[in-house]
Amino acid sequence: MSGLREKQKAERQRRLVRAAAAHFREAGFEKTRIEEIAATAELSAGTVYNYYRHKGELLIAVVAMEVHEVLAAGEPLVQHPPETAESAINALIDTYLDHALVYLSKDNWRHAMAAAIAQPDAVLARRYTELDARLADQVRRLLDSLQQRGAVRADLDTIAFGKMIFNNTNQLFTEYVKEEGQELAELKAGLRAQHAALCRLIA
């Protein structure tokens, strides 16, 4: 019975998070009400609060869903990266960026970032930080694969370099979501120029 209960709980959470993502994108984070999310998920508002204490936690749950899907999409590149370091890094980072606005609008991302910064010791902020760490580690593992192949220098510190690539991506992504008019192609072009310069140092 416990296995069935866990499956039912996971299914309710899945419905809640997908319903929240839809409402946040359509109406915006501020205008979305818990009752609306509950109705879409075919659950009571009380049930929502059994899983999430407030909308902020639901927003981070949507971020987590996005990151988990991005990590899964990036794994084939880690296991079988493109031939050069530059093409491999661009491909992985493009995977992150192409998925970034599937569930979350720029407005949603701004609220998620603000919540993580405003309450750094809160559970949702720690969760946000953990997700970033998992993405940075995937970049590191990509570099490890390239290093084993001989596509990057043998003495490269893949942990430090992986963090640097991800942190730079994160910084430019933050600027991208702050500027409503900036297009994704512009963000990608800026990152690709920087990756080209970096890869000349490590190949």
Rank of each mutant, 00 (worst) to 15 (best):
G3Y: 11
L4M: 14
L4D: 13
R5H: 13
R5A: 15
A10F: 05
R12Q: 06
R12N: 07
R12F: 03
Q13F: 00
V17W: 01
A22D: 11
R25D: 04
I34L: 08
E35T: 09
E36N: 11
A38K: 01
E42L: 15
E42F: 14
A45M: 06
V48A: 02
V48R: 00
V48T: 00
K55C: 01
E57W: 03
L58K: 03
L59M: 05
L59W: 00
V62E: 00
M65H: 09
E69V: 06
E69R: 15
A73K: 13
E75A: 10
P76E: 09
L77C: 11
H80M: 12
H80E: 13
E83A: 15
E83F: 10
S87W: 05
A88W: 01
A88L: 05
A88S: 14
N90T: 12
N90D: 12
D94A: 13
T95E: 07
H99G: 06
A100Q: 08
L101P: 01
V102A: 12
Y103D: 05
Y103C: 07
L104N: 02
D107G: 13
N108V: 04
N108Q: 08
A112Q: 02
A112T: 02
A112M: 05
A112D: 02
A112V: 04
A118H: 08
D121R: 15
D121G: 13
L124W: 03
Y128Q: 06
Y128C: 04
E130V: 12
L131I: 08
A133M: 08
L135H: 03
L135N: 03
L135T: 05
R140A: 09
R149C: 09
G150Q: 10
G150H: 09
G150M: 11
A151Y: 00
A154T: 12
D155A: 14
L156A: 07
L156Q: 06
T158V: 13
T158E: 04
T158P: 03
A160T: 08
F161M: 12
M164I: 08
M164G: 06
N167L: 14
N168L: 14
T169V: 12
N170R: 11
F173C: 01
Y176I: 00
E179C: 07
Q182T: 11
Q182D: 10
E183G: 02
K188R: 12
Q194P: 05
A196S: 14
A197W: 07
L198Y: 14
R200L: 15
L201T: 11
I202N: 06
